[in-house]
Amino acid sequence: MSETQKTEAEIGTARVKRGMADMLKGGVIMDVVTPEQARIAEDAGAVAVMALERVPADIRAEGGVSRMSDPDMIDGIVEAVSIPVMAKARIGHFVEAQVLESLGVDYVDESEVLTPADEANHIDKWQFNVPFVCGATNLGEALRRIGEGAAMIRSKGEAGTGNVVEATRHMRQIRQDIGRLTTLDDAELYAAAKELRAPYELVAEVARLGRLPVVLFTAGGIATPADAAMMMQLGAEGVFVGSGIFKSGDPAKRAAAIVKATAFHDDPKVIAEVSRGLGEAMVGINVDSLSEEQKLAKRGW
């Protein structure tokens, strides 16, 4: 190789995809269904918005098959804000993902909130330049998604309920699973990989690092500043808020409050201050009252 030869710029590398999620750390990503909501989210200090046609609470209420959003609607939101825009594709629906990539979306969420399009396979995410975030309820699931090319993981929680109990369970589960791996010796990691049904290399990497090799956010049922701060204290590196903001009484104020509580998650005085006078929180659903059929977190495997 001669000295004057230039190295080619490489796009879509694992470092570029995972690095994008690194820049979102400590931040809040908000579900929005209109350009107007996207502007409110950006004004409040959101680090990104998730463009979708219906927030999870409405998907639950209205039922039917839930799909990728209309490209016009996504374009409108991309136009409206300067922060990154994410959008959801159905589990396994690689063509929806191709469409979202072609629209210039910054991150694709292969999401259980939409109706799964493939009962056996998730999207082969290595085939894309756009990075993917995927949901997980435990470490094995997180590592299977990373094995398929996910560059960011979020807890699934139970979207659209305004009830944080499932997100808590998933965050604690992932953290416990990681903690356990760090106590195993090399020989035991092979069996652990088998138990977790996850690639051995990723299991060994997590055991060595003591964390996931990608950024871990939380999602599902976060409705208050205190909910967001609790997830951060449980080890989340950032927060997705779905229905919790725009299904509440004063979205702009609540959005700004959740942003502040996420940044100062370890300071109860700040959380108390921002929690004052926020108006009505979303009504919420008790997860116990959902049938197994109605639980979105069961989607994906």
Partner: peptide, 27 residues
């Protein structure tokens, strides 16, 4: 550009000696 245009490449940086620096550009 947007995230799909994000890239990494090697560049020279004045004041930093040795091999080129692997620079990661994200949006």
């Amino acid at each position: 550009g947007r995230q799909v245009d994000s890239f990494e490449t090697e560049i020279g940086i004045e004041g930093i000696s040795g091999a080129p620096f692997r620079a990661v550009f994200i949006r």
